[in-house]
Structures are given as C-alpha cells and as structure tokens.
Amino acid sequence: MLRPVLLQVDNFTPPTRTPWGGRWIVDQLKRDLLIPVVREELGVVGEAWEFSVEPSFPSRTASGNLLADLIAADPVGWLGEPAVRRFGPQTPLLVKLLDASANLSVQVHPDPDDPALPPEQSGKPEAWLILHAAPGAGIWLGFRDGVTRAEVRRTIVEGGRVDELMNFIPVQAGDGFVIRPGTVHAIGAGVSLIEPQFVQAGRRGVTWRFWDWNRRYDAEGNEDEAGQPRPLHLDRSLSVATLDGATGEAFVQSCRAGEVVLHHGALATRRLCEEPWFRVDVLEGTGDAALDDAPGVQAITCTRGFARLSWDGGAIDLPAGRTAGVPAAGPEVTLLQEDAQVVRTMDGTLVA
C-alpha cells in the first residue's frame, strides 16, 4: 500500500538562476532543518522547489528517491484515475517557496495549452500566499487604466520604467493572489511566499520577461553594471499579456484570492483558490483534519509551527519548512497541527 512521503529539504535553485534571492528561506523558515555549516555556506536562495517532477529541479524523497519515479511506478495509485486520464502518468502540480531580496523581473506566463509553445514547454498558472513581507514591500499586477501595448513597448525600447505603468500592491503575510495566464506581474523586494503552480507533466514551465529593471549581471549572477542583461522576450510577452480587459484596480481585485472559509474553530481552514489547474487550502491553528476529500495527489507544506501526518501504522513529522506528498490511494491520513500554518495543494477542477 502507498504511503505519504517526506520530501527533501534543500531542493534550492542556484544564485545564477535566481540572482534576486535572499536568505529568508534558509535563515528563517528552514533554519532548524539545515546543518549550520551548510546553511552558512549557502549563498542567496531564491527558490526551494518543494514538490516537483519538473525536469529542471525534480524533488527527491528524504531517502533519496525521485518523486517522479515513485509516481511513475503507480500513476493511478498516486494521482487517481481522473488525473491520469487528463494528464497522463505524471502530476502537473508544482509547489515552490520563493524569497526576493531584490525585485523580480516583470514577466508573464502563457496558457498551458498555448498552441504556439513547442512540445517541451508549458505555461504555468500560479497562486501566491504571502508568508512574510518587509514594511512597505509589495507586488506589481497588471497595468494601470489607459496603458496600451504600444506604450509598454515604447517604454521598454526607450529604456524607461515599466513599473510606473503598473499597479503596485503593498502586501502582508496571509494575502493571497491567483496569477492566471496572461497576468503581467512582478514580486517586489522583501516579499516571501509559497507558490503552487501548474506545469504540464514532463515539460518545463515558461516565463517570458517583459523587463528586468535595466539590470546587468556578471557570470555568477551578481548585479554588475559592466555585466550582461538577462534576455527579454518582448514580442512573446506582449502577445499573451492581458491588456484588453479589466485594468487598474478592477484587474487587481480579479487577481485576489477568494479565501472562502471552509471551517471555523481552533483549526481554521480557508480555500485560497479553486481554479481549473489547482485548489489550494490554508489550515491555521491547532487541531486535526482528515485529508480524505481530495481525489488526487496532495502536496502538504508546513509554513509555520509544527504539523504531523498520521495514518494507521505510520506518521511523518512536518516542522516549518518541510513538505510531504500524499498519494490518492492508501490509508486514511490525518493532519495534526500545533499552532501551525499548513498549505495544502490539490488538483483543480479540470480533474474534479
């Protein structure tokens, strides 16, 4: 019988890939999970890929096995029959932790089924739950009222400031957003979040950069005025960017997570979002909850406090900063929390 699995704690991206990263993930969230000498030797960490079968940074279990291999050995058992019919023998779910000490580039993701993408690429809808925000920190979502594609293009070509055309939203811990295909966005310095994503199984998620704050970098990923800029994808970005519908504050409101309360009490549960690609619940407080209401695989991430997954004959401890995978088939699993916040990522309505 399949059992939940604990996933590795240090599936980090290198500074060359995420030069904007900080130290919050390793010095705060995962501090007690890393050997001190290892933690001190790490540079900036922009992302931790907590639950991933994506080829770029695939997750391994705590015992060293690839999560993708476990799923491939029993796709129906891990994913459930509806998901296998829709997506094949691997999961499209991807869960990251992200920490920004500098502004991320202004970017956009295409639709997962965009016919212009080659077979090895996928769009990647996202959801964000803010875990930490420095005073005054925020995000950029969409463009202000009246901004046109021609104005965006001209600003970039002339070396202007694209952020001045966008909506800036100050954020705090607990805020939630859904970043649908075509949403132009950027995460600001001082923001840390958990980011469930949808990436077509076996493909790599696509990010198209509009603008990178006119920055240049050396070969090690450090900002350097004498270095080279990261590549931009202006034509592709503009071709999929949402600019023809709602803009300004109306667009920002359309991106805010609905946060429907599913359960009140000492262990409160809210539905951060329910999209075609994923469902995300946030459980906060002390108590226990059954995890038997999802038809597919689940990614369970403890982002604060202490949690435990328990079933007949076994248990997994989840201190802050750890993630487990729960298969569709197997024993009934109960989540126990002690003054904790847990993020539960599940299949969306495409396979409900």
Rank of each mutant, 00 (worst) to 15 (best):
G265I: 01
P331K: 11
L318I: 15
I25H: 04
A72E: 15
A241E: 03
T301N: 05
D218K: 04
Q172C: 01
G188T: 13
S105I: 01
R154Y: 11
G221L: 02
R86W: 09
T16W: 03
A68Y: 01
P110M: 04
P196K: 05
M1D: 06
G305R: 14
P229Y: 03
S122R: 01
C302A: 12
P14C: 09
I300G: 02
D293K: 05
R256Y: 00
S59P: 10
V342D: 10
E164R: 15
S101T: 08
V38S: 11
M1N: 06
T183E: 00
W49V: 01
I187T: 11
A68T: 11
S237V: 03
V261A: 06
Q337H: 08
A320E: 14
E50P: 02
R144F: 09
L93C: 01
Q8L: 02
D293W: 08
R308V: 03
R271K: 12
A299L: 02
P276Q: 08
A329C: 04
E81Q: 14
F306P: 06
G176F: 06
V84M: 09
P115Y: 09
V240P: 02
W128C: 10
P119V: 06
H185R: 14
L238G: 10
L97E: 07
G348S: 10
V191E: 03
Q200F: 00
R144C: 00
V84W: 06
G43L: 07
R270Y: 03
G182W: 00
P89D: 00
R85V: 08
D145M: 09
L7S: 15
A226K: 13
L2N: 01
A290C: 07
S192C: 13
E50C: 02
P319R: 15
V333E: 03
V37S: 15
L93D: 05
E338G: 14
A116D: 10
P319F: 10
P125W: 07
Q341W: 03
A289M: 07
P19H: 08
L42V: 02
L318P: 12
A134D: 14
K124V: 01
P4Y: 04
F198T: 08
E338W: 15
L243T: 15
V282C: 02
A299E: 11
D32T: 13
A127D: 06
T183N: 04
I71F: 01
A100H: 12
S63M: 03
P58D: 11
V76D: 03
R39F: 11
A62T: 08
Q28V: 12
T303I: 12
S105A: 15
G77A: 09
W311G: 00
A315Y: 00
I25F: 02
L34G: 10
R216H: 13
L193Q: 06
D218C: 08
S192V: 11
G138I: 07
A294K: 08
G142V: 01
A62I: 14
L67F: 04
E158D: 12
R161I: 07
A257D: 05
V260G: 04
Q337T: 12
N167V: 10
E40P: 10
K124W: 07
G22Q: 13
D212E: 13
P15I: 06
G313I: 00
T155M: 00
E47Q: 10
L272H: 11
Q90A: 12
L238N: 11
T345Q: 10
